[in-house]
Each structure stands twice: as C-alpha cells, then as structure tokens.
Write a protein that binds this DNA or RNA. Structure first.
Length: 253
DNA sequence: CATGCGTGGTT
DNA sequence: TAACCAAGCAT
C-alpha cells in the first residue's frame, strides 16, 4: 500500500484491511471485488490484485507465513527490491539494506555530497546502503529505520532541516557547500487526460455499483470513445474488470 | 533502462 | 494554479 503512496493516506485503509483480513489465507479467500472496494481510492489498484495473489501464494506455499528471505519475498507479485528488504528489516528485525526514495536521497547527500539522488540503480544503491549497516541484525534494522526516517523528516527533498540533522557534522553535502542537484530530472508524469485518469474513472464507477452496469454507464465518464474503449479493454486484461454474458460490466468476482 | 500505472494534498 | 510528488513495481 505504501508504494508511491503517502503514509497518511494508507494508514486508515490499512487498519481496516488488517482487521478484516488478518492472515494471508483470509485475504486469499476474499473476492477480487471485495478487495478492490476495500482498496478504494488508494491508487494503483493493480497493487491490490498483486497483494491478493501474493497472499494466495503465501497461504499455499509458505504455510500462511510471510517469507523472511529476500529471494522468497521478491518472487511474490508486487514485491520488489524495496518491499522485500523492508519486510526483512522491519518485519523480522534482520539486517537488510532498505532503499527507498528517501534513503537514496540521504545517501546521495550525506555520503556522495550531491544535492539529490540521480536515477535509481538497484545494485549500486543496495551496495551503498549495505556499507552503512553494522553486522548485528537488530542494530542494522534500527539503522535502516533511521535512514528512512531521516530522509522523510529531516533530509527532505524541498527544504532539508539541516539545523537539526543528527549527521550534519559528517555530511558530505555540507562539506561540499551544499551544491544544487545537477543530474537528470525524472520527467514528471502527467495525469490529466491520460489513460491512468480514464482507467481511474471507469474503475470508480465499477467500485460504486452493487450490480453490473451497461456500457452506457461507463461511456458517461469520458468523452473520448477510442481512449475509453482502450482503457476499458486494458482493465479487462488486467483483471480489474469483468464483462458478464449479458454484456454488462462489473468488478471481477 | 524508460515507461505506464491512481490519487489527492502541497507548493 | 499548474506542477510537484508520495515507504515502487512490472514489463
């Protein structure tokens, strides 16, 4: 849920979700429609389906227990380098380099003396953070937590609060005179008018109805017919929507 | 490796 | 206010 999504938006949904489906097998037993409605407007609903699939795999192949190794974790749908290591470190208290956008920024500044992190490069990024972790599991996990927190609260992208930074004295960026970031900028992805927006609108209709709806109901939310059709088709392909025998559309069973 | 994938608060 | 961006992942 936290992938590319602010904590404040996730927290209430996560709380309800865990109360409703406290174990992987419980989640696996739920319908896709129920899961997508519970996910609500959290965004990137394919994550909900991947989580559902991951829960089924964990229930069937891992004795209903979330794996504790990065390889097993990364083999699950929706679990990548970051999430796998976050589970190892924060779920199991073990030593694992946890590299999210905040940690990459902290390392870019404090270690490399740059204004910000460039494009993600998984292997070198992992190596950078690995080098910062002590051998002891519990301490390493605590350091990982601290790195993320430092990036989220102090070493922020906009206006870093260097005056209260605990590593100010050792920061390479400070020593460098706080140079501005000069590398390539990740292009900002637009939203208005994109397929993402249209898919969101279509799915919002399906989430909001208890019964399957005719195509007309979907046509109403977007004027561009070719784009609308393309998006509806992609939702069907992704397993986020279903078309019944009578031609009506609904969330998948 | 670049791109597409939701959403809504902040600047 | 349009742009930015928030605990990434899959292809």
């Amino acid at each position: 849920m936290l992938q590319q999504t602010p904590v404040t938006r996730v927290e209430p949904i996560w709380t309800d979700w865990m109360a409703r489906w406290p174990t992987p097998s419980a989640l696996a037993a739920a319908s896709r429609a129920d899961i997508l409605r519970a996910w609500g407007k959290l965004g990137y609903p394919r994550r909900a389906l991947r989580l559902h699939e991951a829960a089924a795999t964990i229930a069937a192949a891992h004795d209903d227990t979330v794996p504790s190794g990065t390889d097993d974790l990364e083999a699950l749908p929706g679990i990548g380098s970051y999430t796998a290591r976050a589970v190892v470190a924060f779920g199991y208290g073990r030593r694992a380099p946890v590299v999210d956008t905040n940690v990459r920024r902290v390392v870019a500044r404090a270690v490399h003396g740059a204004g910000d992190a460039g494009p993600a490069r998984t292997k070198p990024d992992l190596a950078d953070v690995d080098a910062l972790l002590p051998p002891d599991d519990a301490t390493a996990a605590e350091i990982s937590s601290g790195l993320m927190e430092l990036g989220a609260v102090v070493c922020t992208a906009r206006a870093p609060r260097c005056g209260i930074c605990p590593v100010h004295a050792e920061c390479a960026w400070q020593a460098n005179g706080r140079p501005a970031y000069d590398g390539p900028r990740k292009p900002v992805q637009g939203f208005a008018g994109t397929d993402r927006q249209v898919r969101g609108k279509l799915l919002d209709v399906l989430r909001g109805t208890a019964h399957p709806v005719p195509r007309d109901a979907l046509d109403a939310v977007w004027p561009d017919a070719p784009q609308r059709d393309r998006c509806l088709h992609s939702l069907l392909v992704d397993g986020l929507a279903e078309q019944h025998d009578d031609g009506r559309f609904a969330l998948p069973a």
